[in-house]
């Protein structure tokens, strides 16, 4: 994710990540209805709806599909690797007693950190949204790994909040494009102090 230059590839990667997360939820479900429903909801909202919405957004914006970064790709990869390492290191102290899938906890923490790196180091507004979504997936993975998953109606509420946030961000990106003729957040710096 940190090394990719094409936005389309990133969105496909995000969709794939969600399909895998959904499958993980199914595996962990052990036939319990609650998890199967949560997994299905996840697949539908995050694996299908959000990626489709993002593709449509990119198409209608008519901007280059290239990821622009403050950092060069090698530096990004290096930093990403470092953060993943930090995630694994710190993640161990996050493993709680009775965690369902202790191995996944450091992965989740690493994903959260990488999402943050992505948000702060990329210029385009769309890529910041992708960073946020990666972070959100990390949080979801953490919930799967530490507990039996949050209660179903909470899980669905959280996913709906994420979906609403992405739609709202999409509308804002359109307006940003109309107003500034670009979606480079680095060049939005009217407000200070």
């Amino acid at each position: 994710m940190v090394g990719r230059k094409s936005l389309d590839a990133l969105i496909r990667l995000y969709a794939l990540q969600n399909v895998l997360l959904g499958l993980l939820a199914f595996v962990l479900a052990e036939g319990e209805l609650h998890f199967i429903l949560a997994g299905l909801g996840l697949l539908l909202i995050k694996g299908v709806l959000i990626p489709l919405y993002l593709f449509r957004l990119l198409e209608r914006l008519g901007i280059s599909h290239e990821v622009e970064s403050y950092l060069s790709i090698p530096l990004s990869l290096l930093l990403g690797g470092l953060l993943a390492g930090v995630g694994f290191w710190v993640g161990r102290s996050f493993v709680l007693e009775g965690a369902r899938l202790p191995e996944a906890v450091p992965v989740a923490i690493g994903l959260i950190l990488l999402g943050m790196l992505f948000m702060v180091s990329r210029k385009k507004a769309v890529t910041q949204v992708l960073g946020f979504l990666a972070l959100e997936n990390g949080v979801f993975l953490l919930a799967l790994a530490e507990t039996h998953g949050l209660p179903l109606f909470i899980e669905i509420g959280v996913a709906l909040d994420a979906f609403a946030a992405v739609v709202l961000a999409g509308v804002l990106i359109f307006r940003i494009k109309e107003t500034f003729q670009h979606i480079d957040t680095a060049r939005m710096r009217e407000l200070k102090g």
């Binding site: 946020f132 804002l172 940003i176 107003t179 500034f180 407000l191």
Partner: peptide
């Protein structure tokens, strides 16, 4: 109603607020 400054403020609010709350 939008406008350049309002957009910048809203974007900042949405991104920071969402990461914080995550």
């Amino acid at each position: 109603k939008g406008g350049a400054r309002a957009l910048e403020a809203t974007w900042k609010y949405l991104m920071l607020g969402s990461v914080g709350i995550a």
